[in-house]
Structures are given as C-alpha cells and as structure tokens.
C-alpha cells in the first residue's frame, strides 16, 4: 500500500553475512592442523607404552621391592643383582654438584640481566647465553674429562680419572642459561611500580633486587630450579663420558659412579638381544627416570602458570 511495503517486498531477505555454502576446505585444513598437534600427544603415549610394557615384564622377573631396596646394581653379572639404589645415589650426587653451580649462578645472572644490565648489554648477553645453551653435551663431556678433571687433579683434590665432581660441575655450568632465562622471564614480569615504590622509600638497588624482585618472582625462580634439576637428572652424555661406569653407592664426588642415564646409554649402545633381562633393565631404569623428571616438570609448569596468572 505504502512505499515502505513496496521496499519490503523488493527485499524479501536480509543480507546474509555467512557464506552461501559450507567451506569443506576450511574444515579439512583444520583437521590437518589438528593431526599435526596429535603427533605430540602420540609421542607422549608412545613414550609411556614403550617404558611401561617392558617394565612390567621386568618386574615379573625381579621383585619391585628388591629393585628399589637393593643396594647392589650388577645386571650383567652372574649372579645378577638389580638394586637401583647405586644408580639413584649416582644421579643424586651429580645433580647436587650441578645445583651447587647452576642455582646460584643462574639466579645471579638473571638478577643481573633483569635489574642491573643496560638494554644494550642485555641484547648481547641473551643471544650469548643461547649460544652457551646450544653447545652439545658431548662437547661438555669431552671438556669435563680432558680439561676439568686434570685441572682438579692439579689442584690436589685427589680425584679419579673418572669422577662425579667434574661431571656434576660441568653439568651445572651447562644449566646456568636454563635457570637464568626462566628466572629472568619471571623477574621481568614483576611490575615496575613495585620497584619504583621501593626506590621511593630509599631502598638501594641491592635491597630492591633481593627484597622486592626476588620474592615477587619466587614461583618463577623455583620453577627454573625444578627445570634445571630435572635436566641435571636427565643429562646423559657428560656423566657417561666423565663420571665413569661403575655403579656403587658413594657420596664421595672424587670417585667414579654411574647414574641412571649413564647406565641406559652404556647398555643401549651394545646390541643386546630383545627380551633378555639386560634389555628390560633399560626400560625399568628409564621408567624410574621418566617418573622422577615428569613429576618435577609438572611442578615446574604449575609454578610458571602461577606467576603468569599473578602479573600478566
């Protein structure tokens, strides 16, 4: 009747913003990308199956109580003995000496980069630390065996040709960049206002660093520590090369000792027959290693999320 009705009749439908048809190509692409993402899920599942299945077979032959309570590790001897404690102690001692180096130095480096260094210095330091982190572990192992151990001998420490001390300290140096970069991330997430407030109250730079920034970033720092400890526990080549190959319970770092990883490496090199008990020990020790590092990683990931939630 009116002009308005006429236009309504001429435009029977509103303009459709959605596409006319479903774009299958888009779904295919999304599916392919999701498949890529599934590769990493499959990796985790694969690792768990690869470790658990032979380990179950292993524990059918060796009692789990003997495995954890035994203090003699001699799987290749007759009579064989499967007490994992010597390997755990070896790992513990190496990790301890690594921590002696990497925990304080990593934190110090992080404080320096976050609170003291000028931007230009930081821009040089960060890639330099990345490079240090990129040196292959076999190179560090060579260094520990052929330079560091002789150095310790010259210092009159009475160390063995293969010793835990040199291996542990070099592992520690290797992990400085790990601690430094994660801790520095946490420190730079601390709001500038907190620092300004402390300076306004007359604090020195030392006080701001140790009483404001470090406590505020503590969850990130602990996360970096957990990550470094987990990496020290899982480090293979340095200990395989420099710490020796005899599994025994000793807390004396000047002697040689074997870690879990070094055992796996040393045993895996040979072409041992599938299904033999020696073959299965690799997996039982590997499972123990994986469970320990997995627990530490999850804790570390949780702590990182915590500091992200607080300040970002």
């Amino acid at each position: 009747m009116t002009a308005q009705d006429a236009t309504a009749a001429a435009q029977p439908e509103p303009i459709r913003l959605r596409g006319e048809r479903r774009r299958w190509g888009e779904d295919v692409v999304k599916g392919i990308l999701a498949l890529c993402a599934l590769v990493s899920v499959a990796t985790t599942i694969g690792i768990i199956i690869a470790l658990v299945e032979p380990s179950i077979e292993f524990f059918r032959e060796v009692s789990i109580v003997d495995f954890f309570s035994g203090d003699r590790w001699a799987p290749l001897f007759t009579p064989a003995s499967f007490g994992i404690q010597p390997l755990l102690v070896g790992t513990l001692v190496v990790t301890f000496w690594a921590c002696v180096v990497c925990l304080p130095c990593g934190l110090g480096a992080a404080i320096y980069m976050s609170e003291y260094a000028r931007p230009r210095v930081r821009n040089v330091l960060k890639p330099a630390l990345e490079t240090l982190a990129g040196i292959p572990t076999v190179v560090f192992g060579f260094f520990a065996l052929t330079f560091f151990t002789p150095l310790l001998q010259d210092l009159g420490l009475g160390v063995n040709v293969f010793n835990v001390l040199a291996a542990g300290l070099v592992v520690g140096v290797m992990l400085i960049p790990v601690v430094a970069s994660v801790s520095e991330d946490a420190m730079s997430a601390v709001p500038q206002e907190l620092r300004d407030g402390a300076y306004a109250l007359g604090s020195t730079r030392l006080q701001v660093s140790t009483r404001i920034v470090v406590p505020a970033a503590i969850s990130g720092i602990i996360a970096s520590y957990m990550l470094a400890i987990s990496r020290a526990i899982g480090e293979t080549m340095i200990v395989l090369i420099a710490a020796g190959g005899i599994a025994k319970i000793t807390f004396d770092p000047r002697e040689q000792s074997q870690t879990m990883t070094a055992f796996i490496g040393a045993t895996g090199i040979g072409d041992i027959p599938t299904g033999s008990i020696e073959y299965k020990t690799i997996f039982a020790v590997g499972l123990t290693l994986f469970v320990i590092t997995f627990a530490m990683n999850m804790l570390s990931i949780r702590l990182v999320r915590k500091f992200r939630e607080i300040y970002e």
């Binding site: 690792i47 899982g234 997996f283 590997g286 590092t293 990683n297 990931i301």
Partner: peptide, 16 residues
Amino acid sequence: NLAAVPSIVYGILGLA
C-alpha cells in the same frame, strides 16, 4: 612437558 623429557628417554622410545 615433552620439552623437558630427558633426551635419552626419546632414545628408549626409538629403540622400543
């Protein structure tokens, strides 16, 4: 988590 799994464990995966 995978980023922090010890590299030797990947070796075990490959072996198995």
